[in-house]
Structure formats: C-alpha cells, structure tokens
Design a binder for these strands. Structure first.
Length: 588
RNA sequence: CGGGGUGUAGCUUAGCCUGGUAGAGCGCCUGGUUUGGGACCAGGAGGUCGUAGGUUCGAAUCCUAUCGCCCCGACCA
C-alpha cells in the first residue's frame, strides 16, 4: 500500500494554458506527466505506474501471440539506414547524433541517428543469426522508447518526439506463414485492447512509407483523433480514409459512347472548377475532368479526377514512386504549356506527352463519359471529351477521396465517417527489407529465399492518453480497472485518529489480499480537497473513512463510474471490499 | 516548412490599444479559526514582464530581430 503523503501526486486545480483537449489537460492536472519541451514529457510516478501496467499487459499478449522479447539500441549507426530502403523518406524525421566533439567541425552527415523504429536493426540481426528454414518463423519484439523529430508535436503524448512503443518484427519462410503471423498479431492486439478496457477498432490502412502489401490500423474512436475512419455498420467494413474505397462506379459499367466532336471554347479568366460551373458556362463539377500535375522521382505525371472529387494523395503510393509531390506552377507551365486552371489530358493537346511518367485516371471519371476539361492553352477549355476516345490515360485506379454517404464497397449501404486516434498498426511487409539486407534462409531443397516479413507497432504512451480521452468525465479520469495506477483509494478524513488510520491499514491489507493496488489518502486536507482529487485521478474504487461514518459504524464504498455510495458496516467491510474488487477485476 | 496566435511569480492571468517604474486568484511560508465536495482571517516570501537591439527624459506597453510554446495544414504509433 502506498501513502499519498509519502508519494508524489501533484494535482492542479486549473488546466495548463498549453493544453487543448480533455485528455491532455487531465494528464497534467492529475499529476501523470509534466512537459519538458514540445513533445518531450516526464512521466511522474502516477503516470509511470499506468505505463508499467500497459507495458505488462502488452507484453503478456504479445508473448501469447508468439512474440519473443529482446532489446535493441536506440542509437543507430547511420549506415544501417543508408543501406535500408527508405533512407530518403525517413531521414527527415530522425534526430541526428554526432560523435562527441564533432560539433566544432564542419557540418556533415551524422554518424548516428536516434531510432524512430527498428526494421533497419532487426533485419541485419536476423540475417546473421538465422539462415535455415528450421529456425523460422520468428517474431521479435521490444517495448522501448522511439525518437521522431515530428514536425509538429501535438496534444501532449498524442504525437510526441520521444514516446514508448511496442514494436514487433516477424520473419517467415513464405507468404502463407507471414499471413499467419500477421493474424496472430492482429488477435494479440485485439486481446490487448480488450484487456485494457479500451475500444479500438481494426481498420484497413495505407502502408505509407513502410511499404508492404497490406495493413490494419487500430483506432480509438475520438473526436480529437487525427484520422478519418470510413465505415459501414451493415457489412463491418472499416478503413482509414486514406485507403477507403466505395462502390461509386458500378461493376460492369459500359464506356459511354462519344457525344460529338471535341470543341474548343474560350473561357477567359476561368481557372477554377467553380468558375466553369458558373454562368455563362454552366458546366457542373461532376461533368468536368480535373487534371493535377505531380512530380514522381523527378518526372512529371498527371492525375485525372472528376471536378467534384478530391485527390486522396496517399493513394498515389500505389504508383510505385519513391517520393512524389505536387508540381510547382513553374514546373506545370514547363511541361504542359499552360497554367493551372486550363490543363487537360486530351490526346493531341498535350505539349510533351513523352515527358510524362504517366497519366493516371480515377475510375470515377468513367461516370462522366463525355465532359469538359482544359485545353492546355490559357483561357480555353474543350467540351465533348470522351473518356475512352480522347483522354491519354495510361492507367485507371482509385485516387479519389471517399466521402461519407457513398455506397459501401461490400454492402452498398451508405458509408459513415468518424474520427479516430491511431494507437496500433500492423503491416505485412513482404520481402522489401529482407531483400535489401540479404536476410535469406535455406529451404529443405537447399534453395535460398528472402524471408517474408511483417512489422507491428503499438504506441504505448499514445494509448495511455487515448484511454483517458475515451474514459473521463467532467470531474476527471475514469480509469479502467486493469490500467489504473492504483485500483483502490482509501480516503481517510482524520488520519491523526488512530481508529481511522488503523482501519485504513486493515482495509488496505484486505484489498491487497484481493489483488488490488491500494493508495491511502492520509493527507491532512479538508474532505472537499480529497474528494476532488480522488475524482480527478480516477481510481476505480474509493473507500471513505470519516468521522460521520465511524459514529454510525460504517465506511462508504463508491465506484468511480457509479453515482451511488454504499454504506458498509465495519464488520462486513473486508469481505465486501474483496467481493467488490473481484467483480471489478472481472468486469474489465 | 507555410498560415494564425501567444510569451508577465511555481500555476491561471490583468495591465499593452492610448508609454510614467507591475496587480489579482490559486499554490507556497507563519499564526489563528475551521473540518463530508477545491474553507476563512491576519501577516509574509516570490517577477531582469522570453531574449537581444532600437525609439524615448522614461518601455511590460511602440519598432526591429530572434527564440520558445500553442492552434490549423503535410507526417506518424
């Protein structure tokens, strides 16, 4: 049992000025963390206890899912990253660490970086240690600090520069095994989030800079989340908006027949979709072809969308470019011969088709059939443009951003959308890293093959905050039993009375025998202060020992979640406490 | 990195527009009265007003630069 007066729980009456969202305010007010600098936090004793509980539950479930725990360095030789497949993209977020004394010399490439994740470390390790199919599959993990120089740290622990993550890496002999490892981890994640009493739903996700073939994100639904989840209750479909699709284009849609000859018409000063919709032109946005210019690995390419649709930039990842970005106005003029607003992809109007790395069309433009687009000549557009006949399309794909209300790809019912916090992610990586690092094994036919990998992450510190975001009220945090820093709080109003403090110790011992972590509020504070602090730090079960109750021969027992207080006769207090603890522990 | 905001005591802040030498609440220390939902009284400590320049007789206040922090965008667990 821990005595509050001997512990350290610096609670605040007022919210810190730099906190915006409820969970961030409560993290600070309840004395869980303190900020050192943007995205850098000290975990105070109470916050650390929650981290330790989350870590232990995570460890148990990953172990149960086949994970083998190890510990890797946080300082990485830069060579590992240079050798890996994503140095160009990843270096932006990495902290550099130079050798001692190098600060005085001329700037140059760093010799070390602080690890943002560990594919580049684990894969070379496995390469040297595992060479036979007999030693596979393996799934290694650690629960450790990660460093990412986030451009914009946000919302306390939600997006921090230094944070705690469980990261796991699976190695299999073939695709089938990798899928098995993947789903074993998915199951472990589901068990983890259930055990910590937090709703996190698995959604289909974009693979981003990690690469790989497919992935799921675990999302805690919350208004303050950074991600949009597109979902359908009917079919159970759920995806990150970056990845989500809809059945907007019916299967087997026939190409529209040409409606007439292409006709150029003057549109002086018209450079937006909206301007072309307006009088005197009156072309609805869903009848316009929008042409965007991007630069992929140095070469320009075009993306064609309906005028009413928006590009979902993450979906360009499927095109296979290492790096891509929107073209600048100057680059657009150079390649297209016209300024943005008058662009199109009609054959014959393209100034320099050979310079393009491709013309990628969103499938939804087939719904237009015949429409209007820019003439690649400032101040002119063309109408009667037929998708099949006239556009220089090299490939169709899904590039548009899905909106709520569109038909679900599975059920056809309207899709819904909500915000979520990404607390976990699982990737099926394939052989991207194993090939790069030469992590190969020999099979029973003496043949050599690259290992098939998966990688998996749970943001432990972010989860800590997501739990609070999901479980709080106007008075403070409402901890789920399994992750509460303490599970029972014994509030003693007159700690100087031997009768009261002896009773507190006796009940605390009983609660501990029942398996609970106990905090005794033995401070010489007024009752109001103690009640407010109790609600703020959110301990699931509160036992109050006060003069009023002692006269009646009772103690008061109240669950943080509940409104009502039960008065328990002293004689029954220990058994009542034990059974209540058992019920709460089973409930989570 | 682009856009917007902000920096005054440990915390929350007033004062800034219209320059005249910094005020409150909480917290802290001392004493007293209180004691079931953030008590009250009396006394006290604590601030180079983010930093550096400039304007001025005089700068928290006006100007310039710079740094930190917060919010919106691109990125992520």
């Amino acid at each position: 049992m821990t005595l509050w007066s001997q512990f350290f729980i610096p609670t605040l009456k007022e919210s810190p000025a730099d906190a915006e969202i409820a969970s961030h305010k409560l993290l600070v007010r309840a004395g869980l963390v303190r900020k050192l600098s943007g995205g850098l936090y000290t975990y105070l004793p109470l916050g650390l206890r929650v981290m330790q509980k989350l870590t232990e539950i995570c460890r148990q479930e990953i172990n149960a899912g086949g994970g083998i725990e190890l510990w890797m360095p946080h300082v990485h030789p830069v060579e590992n990253w240079e050798q890996g497949p994503r140095w160009a993209a990843a270096r932006e977020i990495m902290f550099r660490a130079d050798s001692a004394g190098d600060g005085q010399r001329a700037p140059r490439e760093p010799q070390f970086v602080l690890g943002p994740t560990h594919e580049e470390i684990i894969t070379p390790l496995v390469k040297t240690e595992i060479t036979s199919y007999r030693d596979l599959p393996k799934n290694f993990y650690q629960i450790a600090t990660k460093f990412r120089n986030e451009i914009r740290p946000r919302y306390g622990l939600m997006r921090a520069r230094e944070f705690v993550m469980m990261d796991a890496y699976s190695f299999d002999t073939n695709d089938e095994g990798a899928v098995k490892s993947y789903f074993a981890m998915k199951t472990a994640y589901e068990r983890f989030f259930r055990r910590i009493g937090t709703l996190a739903i698995a959604v289909e996700a974009d693979t981003g800079v990690m690469g790989g073939s497919y992935s799921h994100e675990f999302m805690v639904p919350a208004e303050v989340g950074d991600d949009d989840i597109i979902y359908c209750e009917e079919s159970g479909y759920a995806a990150n908006r970056e990845k989500a699709t809809s059945r907007l284009v019916p299967d087997g849609l026939a190409d529209a027949a040409p409606a007439g000859e292409i006709t150029e018409f003057a549109t002086p000063g018209v450079v937006t979709i909206a301007a072309l919709e307006a009088a005197p032109y009156g072309v609805p946005a869903d009848q316009q072809f929008k042409t965007l210019v991007y630069i992929g690995d140095g070469k320009p390419f075009l993306v064609i969308l309906r005028g009413c649709d928006e590009l979902e930039e993450a979906k360009l990842g499927q095109l296979g470019f290492g790096l891509f970005r929107p073209a600048t106005a100057e680059e657009i003029v150079a390649v297209m011969g016209a300024k943005p607003g008058s662009l199109g992809a009609v054959r014959g109007t393209l100034a320099n088709p050979g310079a393009l790395a491709g013309v990628f069309a969103d499938a939804a433009i087939r719904l237009i059939g015949n429409g209007t687009t820019g003439a690649n000549k400032d101040g002119f557009h063309v109408r009667n443009v037929n998708v099949a006949r006239d556009l220089a399309i090299s490939r169709f794909g899904d590039f548009r951003r899905v909106r709520a209300g569109e038909p679900c790809p599975r059920s056809g019912q309207p899709l819904k959308s909500r915000r979520g916090i990404e607390v976990g992610h699982i990737f099926k990586l394939g052989t991207k890293y194993s090939e790069k690092f030469g992590a190969v094994y020999t099979d029973d036919q003496k043949q050599s093959h690259p290992m098939v990998m998966g990688c998996y992450g749970i943001g432990i510190s972010r989860t800590l905050q997501a739990v609070i975001e999901q479980s709080h009220d106007a008075d403070g945090i409402v901890w789920p039993w399994s992750v509460a820093p303490f599970q029972v709080l014994i509030c003693v109003f007159d700690p100087q009375l031997a009768e009261a403090s002896d009773l507190a110790k006796r009940l605390a011992a009983a609660a501990e025998r029942a398996g609970a972590d106990v905090l005794i509020d033995d401070r010489t504070e007024r009752p109001g202060v103690k009640f407010k602090d109790a609600d703020l730090i959110g301990i699931p079960l509160r036992v109050t020992i006060g003069g009023k109750g002692l006269k009646e021969g009772i103690v008061e027992v109240k669950a943080r979640r509940a409104k009502d207080v039960s008065k328990v006769p002293l004689a029954d207090a220990e058994t009542h406490l034990a059974s209540t603890i058992a019920a709460l522990a089973a409930g989570t």
